[in-house]
């Protein structure tokens, strides 16, 4: 990015808290609406009951003003509303939101977002272990491969705190409906691997109705289909040895650039994943 463009980006109070690549695919501030983020539905054919149970459970994302029973409206980081993913009130329940675009050219891309997470404040407890994870993935396809880089922040699992970022690179078997349609549930709570390095404590605060916003950035190169960067707040991870879930290219998906966020409960209590704003940028001329 040249000096002039950087100065222009930094002069924009909304954009200055991000560090994007020169081209911006989208800059979504959820105070301005849903911006094309929608429910991830699984594939099905003829009958909706054929949808994989992992996808059947997924609820619709919503615009939340983070209102709580004790303090009222908490609000988002850059306005009143944030995008909220909410699981059902069941341990291991997941919810997923997606935005679907394509890329013009294979190039480096960068996803940046401000986020926070909490379990539903349905009990007067700290509830620190009640949310299992929040995470993201890209769903990409070039001429030869479908590549799905997955990352999650494992907050807790069962009765133990984890506070670690993890990745997944092991493909999942397909279930075939017909010659045209298949499904695979790649978000299951298995085959996650710790990223290199120590655990990372994120500010959880002291009761379930107090939230603090965090920053994360993921760099990925569509030419090599490898990570180039991952950062959460002040922590930068070595992604050189980190792989992605990779499959043979599939029909009808060439050029796909989907961005997905997901949340997972660790108790019979809803898990909430809030996104204040998201920037996806790229570097092409």
């Amino acid at each position: 990015m040249d000096t002039l463009q950087k100065a222009i980006f930094r002069a924009d109070p909304d954009l200055s808290r991000f560090d994007p690549l020169p081209r911006i695919f989208f800059f979504d501030r959820f105070n301005r609406g849903y911006n094309g983020w929608t429910t991830l539905v699984g594939n099905y054919e003829d009958n909706i009951d054929t949808m994989h149970p992992g996808y059947q459970q997924i609820t619709a994302p919503m615009l939340s003003n983070l209102s709580h029973w004790d303090c009222g409206t908490h609000g988002a980081m850059s306005g009143t509303y944030a995008l909220k993913l909410a699981t059902q009130a069941r341990a291991a329940a997941q919810s997923v939101a997606i935005k679907r675009i394509t890329f013009q050219r294979a190039c480096p891309i960068k996803l940046e977002f401000y986020f926070t997470f909490k379990p539903e404040a349905s009990t007067l407890k700290l509830s620190k272990l009640d949310l299992r994870s929040v995470g993201l993935l890209f769903d990409l396809q070039d001429d030869t491969s479908r590549v799905m880089p997955h990352l999650r922040y494992l907050n807790a699992h069962s009765d133990r705190s984890a506070q670690r970022w993890q990745y997944k690179d092991k493909p999942v078997d397909f279930e075939r409906f017909s010659d045209e349609t298949v499904t695979h549930y790649h978000l299951a709570d298995q085959d996650w691997v710790d990223l290199p390095g120590d655990a990372q404590e994120l500010c959880y605060n002291e009761i379930p109705t107090k939230v603090n916003w965090h920053y994360a950035a993921v760099g990925f190169d569509l030419r090599t289909m490898r990570y180039t960067h991952f950062q959460c707040n002040d922590r930068i991870y070595d992604m050189s040895g980190v792989g992605s879930l990779t499959l043979d290219a599939m029909p009808n998906l060439r050029g796909m650039l989907n961005v997905v966020f997901f949340a997972e409960a660790n108790a019979d209590k809803r898990a909430f994943f809030y996104l204040d704003s998201v920037v996806l940028s790229g570097d092409w001329d």
Binding site: Q56, A60, N65, Y81, Q88, R270
Partner: peptide, 23 residues
């Protein structure tokens, strides 16, 4: 438009998941 129940099979007492729409 939010789909708050997608192919769910209902019997007995049912409540849909909470949906925020203060906007």
């Amino acid at each position: 438009t939010a789909v708050i129940a997608r192919g769910q099979h209902w019997r007995g007492e049912v409540a849909t998941e909470p949906y925020e729409a203060a906007w």
